[in-house]
């Protein structure tokens, strides 16, 4: 038996505790979301009527199945509020991901071309904001964008505008906040692929007569597509369900799905509808999540 295989057994035993933890606190809770999304709203504490009661035997269970309620999902499909907030979430996520790509790619490309010893510093500089509280970074923007904030002051002093501009409570502020918060998530995977690229490929392209621009579009960009995919997923998935940024920076006329869920849960205390919204959001995210999981596994486990 090889040393690796002897080593594997205690390693697997080590995984038991985290395995159970994740089953209990990550997997099982989804079961509860699903269950409550199928139950009726009630004015009670907790505010729903339980549908399954496993203590009552099989006959009761069958009866419970018969009266499972899809009302909450029907509501999601019928009420414009929900459909609109789904659409809005998708539009916001796609738009933000594209902007992030447009901004993040040149930055990552610049990083990958720095002299080796500066690359570490540049990477550190990109990671630090990722560690810094993102609520604080959104707040920093509110400071700048508010009615008598720094931006309006500068614009007024320079006579670019004659009256303070309303920046907050607008989609532009929300996009700014999203791009600002997620930029490191886009830059890091892009940089990881771009910095691993074999420079001799570009030299070969140059020797064969390609201009720098041609070399970029024919060699660098196609080879960086895995990084583009990873960065896009890393941004797109959480942005779809984003709550804090739109809540603090965008206006309240149109909500993203994360905000709708929050509103149903905290303000309307309608747990079943909030759960149904969560299930629907999750269904939407399954394809990108599976893709992301595959990418992550390939990166960490060498494509096992």
């Amino acid at each position: 038996m090889s040393a690796r295989r002897i080593f594997a057994r205690p390693a697997r035993l080590a995984a038991i505790a985290p395995y159970l933890w994740m089953v209990l606190f990550f997997l099982v809770p989804f079961g509860f979301v699903l269950k409550i999304s199928l139950s009726q709203t009630a004015i009670a504490q907790p505010p729903y009527t339980p549908v399954f009661d496993f203590t009552e035997g099989r006959a009761a269970l069958a009866a419970a199945f018969a009266q499972l309620s899809f009302d909450n999902f029907r509501l999601l499909l019928q009420d414009n509020l929900y459909i609109l907030s789904y659409l809005r979430s998708l539009v916001v996520a796609v738009t933000s991901t594209l902007i992030l790509l447009l901004i993040g790619y040149p930055v990552a490309y610049g990083m990958a071309r720095l002299p080796q010893r500066w690359q570490g510093v540049a990477m550190m500089l990109v990671i630090v904001p990722f560690w810094t509280s993102f609520l604080i970074r959104i707040y920093a923007w509110i400071n700048i964008l508010q009615h008598d904030g720094l931006l309006n002051q500068i614009l007024l002093t320079l006579h670019i505008v004659s009256a303070p501009v309303v920046w907050l409570s607008a989609d532009s502020a929300m996009y700014l906040g999203i791009v600002y918060s997620y930029l490191p998530f886009m830059i890091l995977p892009l940089y990881a692929t771009l910095s691993k690229m074999d420079a001799s490929l570009l030299e070969a392209a140059g020797d064969l007569g390609a201009s720098p621009r041609q070399a970029f579009w024919l060699v660098t960009f196609p080879l960086s597509l895995p990084g583009v995919g990873a960065g896009a997923l890393l941004c797109f998935i959480p942005i779809v369900g984003e709550f804090v940024i739109p809540d603090l920076l965008a206006g309240s006329n149109s909500l993203m799905i994360g905000q709708t869920l929050w509103l149903e849960f905290f303000t309307n205390k309608d747990w079943p509808v909030a759960s149904a919204a969560a299930v629907a959001l999750l269904l939407l995210l399954v394809p990108p999540l599976v893709l992301y999981d595959r990418l992550q596994r390939r990166q960490l486990e060498g494509g096992r």
Binding site: V33, I237, G241, L261, W262, A278, L281, L289, Y292, Q296
Partner: peptide, 8 residues
């Protein structure tokens, strides 16, 4: 969970 929206 690395990318799962926090509301969920």
């Amino acid at each position: 969970p690395l990318v799962m929206p926090e509301v969920i």
